[in-house]
Design a protein around this nucleic acid. Structure first.
Length: 266
DNA sequence: GCTGCATGATGAA
DNA sequence: TCATCCTGCAGCA
């Protein structure tokens, strides 16, 4: 379930819950036993997210790097934690709660140089959104001959967008996913960046992806939207576009399914 | 008890 | 482009 909003949210909530706390760490599954042993007894100093990468800083100077991949998941229990599942690669407990991590692609200890190398591969992160990032994003798009659908997913032009957000943002921007990235005009490119900032930020706060404007489906607020009403095009192939009624299409882009409205995204 | 699928990314070919 | 790695869960027998 993890796009950038989930990762940033985890960094924020984990730092709040465990920051300044000394943890007992172990690896129930056994595949991170050495790393967990090095974290055991350390105090968490902070957590930060960059795109879909998470970094935890420890009192020993260790940096824990986590990438959830397609199905990695954190579970945090404030009290009465159930036993960890068999797949739990890393567990830690503190006075303030217990954290389990399972299914992640990457769970490793890195040094500052390796952390910098990871960050250097990534495009600007809309949830960091520093001055100049929009321009940086546009400039990176200019250098890409791949379709915009692919450019949004590979993290080199923008970091944190995943398969749901790319479909939804391209819909909101009115851009066909197959448009070559370098051909996107400046205003549309800027709109893609700004929509990414707006929607990932909203997703980070809400803890889920809701892109639909409630007015468009006759709901009072985003919270009132049913599961089926939250998105414009993602996984809605064959259904009518919420804006124009055209049939939402499904296709492939960068090896993943993509959905779009052929009329709104001409 | 299976099977298939999922909001990801990489390395080989 | 394909195979591979990472888990859990829904949907089925």
């Amino acid at each position: 379930m993890p796009e950038g909003h989930v990762i940033h949210r985890a960094a924020r909530l984990h730092e709040r819950r465990f920051g300044g706390e000394r943890v007992r760490a172990w690896s129930p599954q056994g595949r991170f036993s050495e790393g967990a042993a090095r974290l055991d007894g350390q105090v968490l100093e902070g957590a930060e997210a960059r795109g879909k990468h998470l970094f935890y800083r420890w009192s020993s100077g260790e940096i824990l790097h986590v990438h959830l991949g397609l199905f990695g998941k954190f579970r945090v229990h404030v009290s009465d934690p159930p036993p960890p599942t068999d797949g739990t690669r890393l567990a830690w407990e503190a006075d303030t709660g217990t954290l389990y991590l399972a299914g992640a692609t990457i769970v490793e200890l890195v040094d500052p140089t390796a952390k910098e190398a990871i960050e250097a591969r990534l495009g600007p992160d809309p949830l960091v959104d520093e001055p100049g990032d929009a321009e940086g994003f546009i400039e990176r798009l200019r250098r890409r001959s791949v379709p915009i659908g692919a450019a949004l997913l590979d993290q080199k032009a923008i970091a944190g967008v995943g398969n749901v957000y790319r479909a939804e943002i391209l819909f909101l921007a009115g851009v066909d996913p197959s448009t070559p990235a370098k051909e996107i005009e400046d205003p549309a490119a800027r709109a893609i960046w700004e929509l990414s900032v707006e929607h990932l930020r909203r997703g980070e706060r809400a803890g889920r992806i809701v892109t639909v404007d409630p007015d468009e489906v006759g709901a009072r607020s985003r919270k009132d939207l049913t599961r089926a009403e939250r998105l414009y095009v993602y996984k809605r192939d064959g259904e009518p576009c919420r804006r124009c009624g055209s049939e939402v299409r499904i296709g492939e882009s960068a090896g993943r399914s993509i959905w779009w409205c052929p009329a709104c995204q001409g």
